[in-house]
Computed example of a mutant assay.
Amino acid sequence: MDGRGRWLDNVFIERLWRSMKYECVSLHAFETGSELRVGLTKWITHYNGQRPHAALAGRTPDEAYHDVPMPSGPGLTPDQRANSSAVRMAA
């Protein structure tokens, strides 16, 4: 992690760990490692497949990764979405 541009990689990972900590681990009192594994698996599935992300223009990470077209509707216009630096960085 000491190469050029590596700080940007670290930003995304730190954000993921922060979200996991506040949205899953801190809210549940897991008694065993097995319970923790099941809880984290459910949270990661929700995070990647169901939870929209502002940095991805309201898409889920699965939609952005698999390049699913963004639905039209309230929020950013298609031109704004196409020019969004966050969408370009995530893709």
Score class of each variant (00 low, 15 high):
3 G>S: 14
6 R>E: 07
6 R>M: 09
6 R>Y: 12
6 R>A: 15
6 R>C: 12
7 W>Q: 10
7 W>V: 10
9 D>W: 13
10 N>H: 09
10 N>T: 11
11 V>Y: 04
12 F>I: 15
12 F>Y: 13
13 I>W: 01
14 E>W: 04
16 L>Y: 15
17 W>L: 11
17 W>M: 08
19 S>N: 14
19 S>I: 11
20 M>L: 15
20 M>W: 07
20 M>Y: 06
21 K>E: 13
22 Y>V: 13
23 E>D: 12
23 E>G: 02
24 C>R: 05
27 L>P: 08
27 L>F: 06
28 H>A: 06
29 A>P: 02
29 A>D: 12
30 F>S: 02
30 F>D: 04
31 E>F: 05
32 T>H: 01
32 T>A: 03
32 T>L: 00
33 G>Y: 06
33 G>F: 07
33 G>I: 05
34 S>E: 13
34 S>P: 01
36 L>H: 00
37 R>M: 02
37 R>T: 05
39 G>M: 01
41 T>V: 03
42 K>F: 00
43 W>N: 00
43 W>F: 12
43 W>K: 00
47 Y>C: 03
47 Y>F: 13
48 N>I: 04
49 G>A: 05
49 G>F: 02
50 Q>N: 06
50 Q>E: 13
51 R>G: 03
52 P>H: 03
52 P>E: 00
52 P>A: 02
53 H>W: 03
54 A>E: 11
54 A>T: 11
54 A>S: 15
54 A>Y: 07
57 A>I: 01
57 A>H: 05
58 G>H: 04
59 R>W: 07
61 P>Q: 07
61 P>A: 07
62 D>N: 15
64 A>Y: 05
65 Y>W: 13
65 Y>D: 10
65 Y>V: 12
66 H>K: 14
67 D>A: 15
67 D>H: 15
67 D>R: 15
69 P>C: 10
70 M>C: 14
70 M>A: 15
71 P>S: 09
71 P>M: 00
72 S>K: 13
73 G>H: 05
74 P>I: 09
75 G>A: 06
76 L>C: 08
77 T>R: 08
77 T>I: 01
78 P>D: 12
79 D>G: 02
79 D>Y: 06
79 D>F: 03
80 Q>Y: 00
80 Q>C: 01
82 A>C: 03
83 N>V: 00
84 S>C: 14
84 S>K: 02
84 S>L: 11
84 S>N: 15
86 A>G: 15
86 A>S: 15
86 A>K: 09
88 R>Y: 02
88 R>L: 10
89 M>G: 00
89 M>W: 10
91 A>M: 12
